[in-house]
Design a protein around this nucleic acid. Structure first.
Lengths: 147, 147
DNA sequence: CGCCTTTCTTGACTAGTTCAAGAGAACGCG
DNA sequence: CGCGTTCTCTTGAACTAGTCAAGAAAGGCG
């Protein structure tokens, strides 16, 4: 079981924002709620979803919220090749992603090699490495032929 | 030593193009030559370099060449988060990248876990995985403070 | 409840890349 | 060695994701 169960309870979302030193606003709550329900969404997808509950919301507000939440660590941003940026509520773990080359579906994958595994490449070339990002590309079950 | 030593010999570049079923043109030779000398270049960097030897070349020609060569497998395209697409002459190995978060320098890293290592995530979620992409982020020697 | 600060709305703008039409070059054949 | 077909390049325009800036509106501490 995950250490942190992601909650969409308004009260908990408020607390999360306040702990991060951010004001609690409707757009921010709506963005967090959207990303709880639909992780790995891009800015436009979040915008469309937010607009349903908060019709007046602007695209720039969504960009602003996504940026602010990413800055304080409430969201993680991934930018898979060929896609626009996707956002997810982070769990603090350094998990990786499995992306369908056909339909672009994204699944989370726990880190394969233990705790902070991938942090050790064979040659570091003198770099001070602080993060490893792993993306697996393939066909998701629905996009595989012969099924 | 690498199995395939990258050559910038015009004759070998021609052969490479022909083997791939592509016509041999000056822009294509110039792009290959540029990427031999400056791997991990983006489209504009390639364009600037190509223009030195072939002044009439258009940006779109460079995009076209990069796309065509990538399609037939003569080039590999990587798209690190926050950067535009970078290109390199592939060596057939599935090597990974070390990117400086400060100056964006890119270094190649051999695959850490053996031959085709990273191809086995802990959970496949039913995906038919065909590639794993690993990016290490950190500070390159030149960008590390206290040096 | 009121003020100060942060955040959102509105509007313009940029970088990177792609699309489309026609001129020009590669190369297989005679 | 020239010819025609086909592929490639040039020219010009357009598009998408994302950023920047100024003012209006809302949060929240006192």
């Amino acid at each position: 079981m995950p250490a942190t169960q992601l909650s969409a309870e308004p009260a908990e979302l408020r607390a999360e924002l306040q702990l991060a030193g951010l004001r609690v606003t409707s757009p921010r709550l709506a963005v967090l709620t959207t990303l709880t329900r639909q992780p790995h969404s891009d800015a436009d997808t979040v915008f469309q979803a937010v607009r349903l509950s908060l019709p007046g919301t602007s695209v720039q507000a969504v960009y602003g919220v996504l940026g602010a939440l990413t800055d304080v660590g409430l969201l993680r941003r991934i930018e898979p090749a060929g896609s626009s940026a996707l956002y997810e509520r982070r769990i603090g773990d350094n998990h990786h992603h499995l992306i369908c080359t056909s339909c672009r579906a994204v699944r989370d994958v726990d880190c394969a090699t233990g705790e902070a595994p991938c942090l050790t490449p064979s040659q570091s070339h003198g770099f001070a490495i602080d993060q490893a990002e792993v993306t697996f590309w393939g066909l998701c079950p629905d996009c595989q032929p012969g099924r």
